[in-house]
Structure formats: C-alpha cells, structure tokens
C-alpha cells in the first residue's frame, strides 16, 4: 500500500489495525477486486466493462479464452469449432500427480476440454476465425488438442477465406504428452504456411505470457505480430537464461516493450483498442472499406 489515496488512512489509523497486503479476505469475492499492480480496489462490473484493464494504472489482467472472445468478437453469429475435441493420456504420464488427474482437475476448474477455444465469428461484420488460449488450463500448454483445434480453425478459415486471429497465452509445449506436443509446433506452423500461400492474413496477438514452444511456432508467425502491454514473451524462461549465462538479466528483458524495440513485434496495442486496430489492419490487407465512424463508435 503506498498509493496516494491510501496515505491519509495510514496517517490516522494506528498501525495495529492496519492490514498490510492482501491476505485478509474482508471483501466478498466477486463484487470487488484489487489490482495486482497498483493495489487499487476495483468494482468488478466496472473492471469487466473495461475489458479487465485496470482503470487506474492500465494493468492488463489475464483473460480466459471465453472472456477474450467476448471482448473481441461481435456478439452475433458466433460458431465454435472443435468444441468436442478432448485430450487423451497417450503416455500414461505421471509425475507427482497423474496427467489424467491434472486434466480432470483443469477441466473441472475451467469448464473447458483443453487450453484452446476456437470460434468462427465476426469483427465489425468481417468474418474471422479466432483462436484463444486459456492460460488457466495447465498454463495454456500446447498438446495434441490445442494443435488439432488450431488447425481446424485454420481449415475453417481456408474454406471461407476468413482471416485468423490468435491470442496466445501459454507456457509452451505440454510436457505430459511428450514428443506429441513438440510435433504440434510443426503441425500448426504447416497449417499457417498453407494459409499464407492462399493469401489469407494471420494476426498473432501475444499476451502475458507467451513462451517456449508456442512462441517458437504459431505465435511468432503472424503476418502482423501484436503484443499487449507489458506481457512476458520469449523462447526460454528468464530463470533458465539466468542459470545458463550466470548474469543478471537487463531491465525489462522479454517484455512486450523489449520485443518492440528489438523488432520482434509490429506494435503494442492496448486491449481496449484491439478490435479497431485489428480490423484496420485486416481491412487494408484484404482491400475492404474502412469502418465508418458510427461503426467504430459502437465497438
């Protein structure tokens, strides 16, 4: 707590009754929440209207796949692709927990089959296909289901000429499916190569975090790569790099801003501007008219 708004409270309250940090749950869950960056107490409904961007400091909070799609697509004419594709446990993988159990838990917690949701829909009436990662499902890791659903999304785009937009949020390939997960990198990249040959645009939006095998395949292959502000994006994790090179990593290493500076992404776009910005790019690439001001105002 060091914000200006709180400082007068700290001055008049004896230190014993002040609660430091966020361990005490005096606020009923769901109605209010606290910004993890600036600690501002936020009204949940307002936060949702603001696409889960903190109105005080601009922190982009994590969205799950459905929230992401809700923020991005027009409300009408949505059709989900590959909703029934579900994971198996081909290796009978077990570490401290069985993969089967981890999957069951993640499915129960998220209500999703796996870490990717694919939706055909419209963006200001333009037909598009959206692939959105669910970081809350096993760290958004890519196994057989994520790869397959992504490819089905690309196939849908191929059959109706719709651009593809992917929102990545992933720790990388899913270890529990072993080499099958690695092969999803080449599978998804091959599908994107086909999309490119057909002249259909692909926009990759990299959100916090996009790492490992997902960064090193579908997420870095956008015709235009867009990052959300302050996302962590990279191939190797910062801890692994620090252990390898045995030196301190530079300030801001692997953030969106670092990637923009080094030329890895085309732009950093505030989530609240994404719909219009992506439409602007796609309408130019596909030689369609720009949005009218009244359409844009409705966004």
């Amino acid at each position: 707590m060091g914000t200006d708004k709180m400082s007068w409270i700290s001055q008049i309250m004896p230190s014993k009754i002040r609660t430091e940090g966020g361990n005490r749950r005096s606020v009923p869950e769901g109605v209010w929440s606290k910004c993890t960056n600036c600690n501002a107490v936020l009204y949940s409904a307002e936060l949702e209207r603001n696409q889960h961007v903190c109105p005080k400091c601009g922190e982009h909070r994590r969205l799950d796949a459905r929230q992401r799609i809700d923020c991005f697509l027009d409300e009408q004419q949505r059709v989900e692709i590959g909703a029934d594709v579900a994971p198996l446990d081909p290796l009978k993988f077990k570490d401290s927990k069985r993969y089967k159990d981890r999957l069951a838990q993640a499915q129960k917690d998220s209500g999703e089959n796996d870490a990717l949701v694919v939706m055909q829909g419209r963006l200001f009436d333009m037909p598009v296909v959206v692939c959105a990662f669910n970081f809350n499902f096993m760290g958004g890791s890519m196994g057989s289901v994520v790869g397959e659903k992504f490819v089905r999304g690309v196939n849908a785009a191929l059959s109706n000429g719709a651009p593809v937009i992917c929102f990545a949020a992933s720790g990388g390939a899913r270890m529990q499916e072993g080499l099958l997960s690695l092969m999803q990198m080449s599978k998804t990249s091959a599908a994107l190569a086909r999309l490119a040959e057909r002249g259909i645009p692909y926009i990759s939006v990299l959100t916090n975090p996009t790492m490992g095998g997902v960064a090193a395949s579908l997420a870095m292959l956008g015709d235009v790569n867009i990052a959300e502000p302050k996302a962590l994006i990279g191939f190797a994790g910062p801890r692994v790099i620090e252990q390898t090179v045995r030196q301190k990593l530079p300030e801001g290493f692997q953030t969106s801003e670092f990637l923009l500076h080094h030329g890895a992404v085309d732009m950093i776009v505030d989530r609240r501007d994404l719909r219009e910005q992506v439409h602007r790019i796609l309408s130019i690439l596909t030689q369609q008219p720009a949005l009218s001001t009244s359409q844009a105002a409705h966004s």
Partner: peptide
C-alpha cells in the same frame, strides 16, 4: 537460452 539469442528472436 541466452540474452542475445532472445534479442535476436530465437522463437521466430
């Protein structure tokens, strides 16, 4: 996994 490798976009 190094600093320069990330700067030059290992992922890409």
């Amino acid at each position: 996994p190094g600093i320069g490798a990330e700067e030059r976009n290992q992922s890409e």
